[in-house]
Amino acid sequence: MLIQQLVNGVLLGTTFALIALSFNLVVGALDRLNFALGETAMVSAICAALLVSQADVPFVVAFVLSLLIGAVVAALTYLLSFRFVSPKYHTAPILSSLGVGLVITSLVTRTFGSDQRRVPTVLEDVRFELGPLVVTGDQLIILVVAALLTGLLYVFLNRTTWGTAIRGVSDDADTSGLLGVPVQRVILLTFVLSGALAGASGLLTGLSFHTVSPFTGFETTLTALMVVVLGGLGNITGGVIAALLIGVVETLTVAYVSATFRDLLVFILVAVTLVVRPQGLFTRQSGVAARV
């Protein structure tokens, strides 16, 4: 059972990793936290779940739509909470994006109701049994899609002009601007990418948990925040590893201790990390944490 629980933990961590990647992209670009990303993931997942379960839209199409919805919502969040706020006021975007998140939740509950929505199984009756280990078809989809998105993001950031521009703005926006990089467009692109990842994360998490609820937005944000703090602000590899670690810790705590202690142990893990290694387990570059 331990091996199965470890696999369950890794799969849970995979869903955390995508939303943490999404968080880290924004931190990298703006040195700011977008507290509406959890709700962005939620609204994308709710819309996609409704399309799949009520309009019989194929999962692949709903998945693409979840990326688009996430991208649009994140772009709107950027315009509402970040674009026109002076960099002098560090807390303003935090409060403003929190507010956007509340508005999104309110709009979703008023439009679609407050019930959780079922995400139908994609590959029914598909199971892979390797001795004591069982992986369902849906779990495999989650793993493959998450790995694919992470890989594509890596390639985009490291092998394309726009990716290089994002990394440049992330390292030093002023110098990038002086070198002719369209900084505002790059930041908008970063938010769009971040929203698309959040949308994907929302639907894949719904697939993993079988349901999506309009009230999970802030909880998702909180989890992502713990992941990025543990992995190191702005560090994409660190974020992935921290997400998997938190997923495994949560799963093993539920299986062998008690569900009541699940969040407590994760909070302790994050708190101890902050005391012993304030920059997180990994650091992308010196000074990022300080700048945030």
């Binding site: 629980q5 799969l11 993993s208 349901t211 609820s213 909880e219 299986a255």
Partner: peptide, 8 residues
């Protein structure tokens, strides 16, 4: 949201 661990 997830009951995977408990059900396992």
């Amino acid at each position: 949201p997830s009951f995977t661990s408990q059900v396992t």
